[in-house]
Write a protein that binds this DNA or RNA. Structure first.
Lengths: 229, 229
DNA sequence: TCCATTTTGTTCCCACGTTCACAAACTCCT
DNA sequence: AGGAGTTTGTGAACGTGGGAACAAAATGGA
């Protein structure tokens, strides 16, 4: 085994693993809340809904935080994953587009509890500006630059209609935002070095519809699992 | 080339391709709305934000709907993809949990326009029952079975808090729902044959935070793309 | 101390997904 | 008709991810 120090910047964690670390984190928090101090990879894998071999391999990319014959210390492992993801620090976030979805996002408690702080809500519609949503006053979109500079914001959320998404993204990138979470049903192009993740509600339903249709047509059910269970 | 008839049930489309078909569908709709009647794989790939070779390979799983030297007929290809996904038919959907997110989902116009019809909104909270959201009256959760039978619902959406998600999923499965879209931040277990797709807002932000942290630490930027642009 | 038991960390192998590169097939122009 | 130009559909190479299996390392009891 090659023991890697936690400061070894050359270490690369596969993208598929990164996407699962937050799930492990949540499962560990649930275990800790139940008063459980130690767990095996089997326990944690069950709680996270994955295969235990996959879990162990995922954790091995972070380092060697378990004890053979014993398992993992819940609090210790939780801290290590949190540090690796970066949720031990505070992340200021701006949300652009305060429609139905923007409202819901602004009120979502799961952000706050994981270190994401909504520092501003922005909308181009003057009718919305000035209203208070989730305890935050909606400000005009043109205030974006001022807010980003003041709070050193790196992460932006787009919850606008599709037609506005690319413009908003362009403005965000120009001002220095380097990570974007896009809820608008549109493809946004960004330069190298900027991360975009897309969440599209209707696409998820369409994927389910495809599998549902195959089930209804009596297709071979061996592959009926949608691949996301 | 093996020409496959559209009724050949043995044909299997890779999961990764299925997940992109809705994106192509949206891009084609945008092209059609711009008055474009024909496009090349390069054009469509750009509009969809993917590599053109990948697009062609994806489309080849459906059949041979293009013309060499010419490209694809926008309307024709759009219809073929829509039929393949199943959005040419009407899909009744129930939403359980009418909090902030449930509200937003009920009002989301993107569902209706793609063949998904919200036939009922359900909540266990008596204070919410009877209220009208997006033109639909909220009904008690216990009405689930009656509604599912009446409308022949196959797809359920969970927008409850985490603690309720597994119970709701169990009830849905018992009643005969075979596809679930889960917005609750919890792992739900379902039996073989039931599809679950999970959308977790805070997980997406955590993935962005991980990459953001790596950028800030001056890590090798060659892999800085979050993998979802 | 030594052995049986447990559980991690890792290796090996297979399946899936992506991309390159090119033959096949179509249009248009002369 | 025939050749130049264009674009699709696909075979092959490559890279990533998942899972079984096992060696290594810890515990606990005799």
């Amino acid at each position: 085994m090659t023991t890697r120090s936690s400061t070894d910047a050359t270490r690369v964690i596969p993208e598929a693993t990164v996407a699962r670390l937050p799930v492990y984190l949540r499962a560990l928090t649930a275990l800790a809340d139940s008063g459980i101090r130690t767990c095996s990879s089997e326990d944690l894998a069950t709680a996270a809904g994955v295969n235990s071999a996959k879990l162990r391999k995922d954790l091995s990319y972070l380092g060697s935080y378990g004890t053979r014959g014993v398992g993992y210390d819940v609090d210790y492992l939780r801290y290590q994953i949190a540090r690796e993801i970066g949720v031990t620090q505070d992340w200021p976030v701006v949300i652009v587009g305060i429609g139905n979805l923007g409202h819901a996002l602004a009120n979502y408690s799961g952000f706050r509890s994981r270190g994401f702080r909504v520092v501003a809500l922005l909308d181009a519609d003057p009718a919305l500006v000035g209203q208070t949503v989730a305890g935050v006053v909606v400000r005009p979109f043109d205030d974006l630059e001022e807010i980003v500079r003041e709070h050193d914001v790196a992460i932006g959320v787009i919850a606008t209609p599709a037609f506005a998404a690319q413009d908003v993204a362009d403005r965000m990138v120009a001002i220095g935002i380097t990570s974007i979470l896009n809820f608008a049903p549109a493809v946004v192009a960004v330069p190298e070095g900027v991360d975009v993740r897309k969440v599209d509600l209707s696409i998820e339903l369409q994927i389910l519809a495809y599998h549902e249709q195959r089930k209804a047509n009596g297709a071979d059910p061996t592959n009926a699992d949608g691949g996301a269970a």
